[in-house]
């Protein structure tokens, strides 16, 4: 599968994750977002940048826990206020904010956590 961005053909997998992470650009992000029916605004792009910076530094993507602690902490001290921030993230990205942000930021697809019967 592929998408075309600014005349360049970019390989993506079935779910829209970049095959070659080097292909990433803001325009690519936008093309992937369009594909997923997301209208990218500044709030979205700010998070995409955060994901890219975080991955650059830690070699892992931020978990939801990290997001609500570090970013949610800015809007409130308490634990239930973190949850409000999480709901805001689900408003921006209704289907799994962390996976979607990884996709938009050109990061590897998150793996499932192990499962029990």
């Amino acid at each position: 599968m592929s998408i075309e961005v600014n005349g360049k053909v970019i390989e993506i997998d079935e779910e829209g994750y970049l095959v070659d992470r080097e292909d990433w650009s803001e325009d690519v992000s936008e093309a992937i977002a369009n594909r997923d029916g997301i209208d990218l605004k500044d709030e979205h792009m700010g998070l995409v940048d955060y994901f890219r910076d975080y991955y650059e530094e830690h070699q892992v993507h931020p978990t939801m826990h990290v997001l609500v602690q570090r970013l949610g902490g800015k809007i409130g001290e308490k634990f239930h206020e973190h949850k409000e921030y999480e709901k805001f993230l689900y408003m921006l990205f209704p289907t799994d904010p962390v996976s979607e942000l990884c996709k938009l930021a050109g990061l590897p697809k998150p793996l499932p956590s192990e499962h029990d019967g």
């Binding site: 830690h58 070699q59 892992v60 993507h61 590897p108 793996l111």
Partner: peptide
């Protein structure tokens, strides 16, 4: 191994 997050 690129599918896995090595620090984790």
């Amino acid at each position: 191994m690129q599918i896995c997050e090595l620090p984790k």
